[in-house]
């Protein structure tokens, strides 16, 4: 087990190195001069050249990379061109809404999708099953911002139950925080629920045909025990996998959802940074998302052993 974790941690290094190179190159090779952006519309070419020199943009590409990666390894992510703050400060300011949104979405989505997936599998072919499957196609194909605006229109504007936009920090007022989390989480959950419900249904269906389910029924166990204790735990591995993969979708979805609901999170920070060619911020955010993604998938792989004793690394 420790052997496995050690090997996986070592394997993360090349993955992140490749990500780092890509992130660095991608931004350098896109057209547009960040110095010109910083200097503004009325700047002279001397001023721009001055800024370029200050930012180190005149150095050869590999020197820029070496300086950048050296700093990153020391925990120095540089200073934002645009926001005039260190990137670390910037991210610290913006991380809370994104984490809150992701956690709420994850909890809500799993709490809803797993039970309906199990039930749909148990009642395969029934009306309930068909409704769930229909929803999952729909939830997958409707873009997040459409769902977001529809929810705002119905619940915030027409019914007036919830606020339209904005964010209140959790320590300031919990209820106001929760109120403002409901619609964004709901929006972001839809696709996620569709995905997990579908996979849950498929893997539970497969497990229900297994011999040990027949054994469990031959023991005289109730349907609930057969489903929850025998079927679901055996179906857990593919479900966990898709939850892990889904977190990538979640991060992408957060960008759109935060914009729709005016949440000052990392998603919106990314959009702002991209629009203003703020290299240090973009690089750091992408790098951070990569680390989060890799670590979550490692955790998911480890969690397999909890559900399936046959898996030993």
């Amino acid at each position: 087990m420790l052997d496995f974790i050690a090997r996986r941690l070592v394997a993360i290094i090349p993955v992140l190195a490749v990500v780092a190179v890509f992130v660095f190159l991608m931004l350098r090779l896109t057209p547009g001069d960040p110095a010109a952006v910083i200097a503004g519309d009325n700047a002279t070419s001397d001023q721009i050249a001055d800024i370029r020199a200050k930012l180190g943009l005149n150095e050869p590409l590999w020197t820029q990379f070496a300086i950048w990666i050296g700093n990153v390894l020391q925990g120095n992510f540089g200073e934002s061109f645009f926001f005039k703050k260190t990137v670390a400060e910037l991210i610290a300011q913006r991380i809370e809404p994104t984490v809150a949104l992701s956690v709420c979405t994850l909890l809500f989505a799993v709490a809803v999708s797993v039970p309906i997936g199990v039930l749909a599998a148990y009642r395969q072919g029934s009306v309930f099953d068909r409704v769930v499957m229909g929803f999952s196609v729909l939830g997958f194909s409707v873009p997040g911002f459409v769902i977001g605006y529809c929810l705002i229109y119905v619940f915030a504007i027409e019914l007036g139950w919830l606020p339209v936009q904005g964010y209140v920090r959790i320590e300031v007022n919990f209820w106001q925080f929760l109120e403002r989390m409901i619609l964004p989480s709901l929006t972001l959950s839809v696709g996620f629920i569709a995905l997990i419900a579908r996979i849950t249904r498929a893997s539970v269906l497969e497990v229900l045909n297994e011999d040990y389910i027949r054994t469990a029924r031959a023991k005289g166990l109730s349907n609930r025990v057969v489903l929850m204790r025998h079927a679901l735990r055996n179906a857990a591995v593919p479900i966990l996998t898709v939850i892990g993969l889904g977190i990538a979708i979640l991060i992408g979805g957060a960008v759109v959802t935060e914009s729709v609901f005016g949440l000052p999170g990392l998603g919106r920070l990314t959009v702002e940074a991209v629009l203003s060619r703020d290299f240090p911020t973009i690089q750091t955010v992408i790098l951070m998302f990569s680390v989060v993604y890799v670590v979550i998938n490692l955790l998911i792989d480890i969690s397999y052993t909890v559900f399936d004793p046959r898996i030993r690394y």
């Binding site: 027949r214 005289g220 004793p309």
Partner: peptide, 25 residues
């Protein structure tokens, strides 16, 4: 009633012992 009878009055064993037991319990 069938559930009550199973394993108390009538029991069954199967062909494939490899797959008849729940692997995660």
């Amino acid at each position: 009633r069938l559930r009550d009878l199973r394993c108390t009055r009538m029991s069954m064993i199967f062909q494939e012992p490899m797959t008849a037991l729940n692997p995660v319990m």
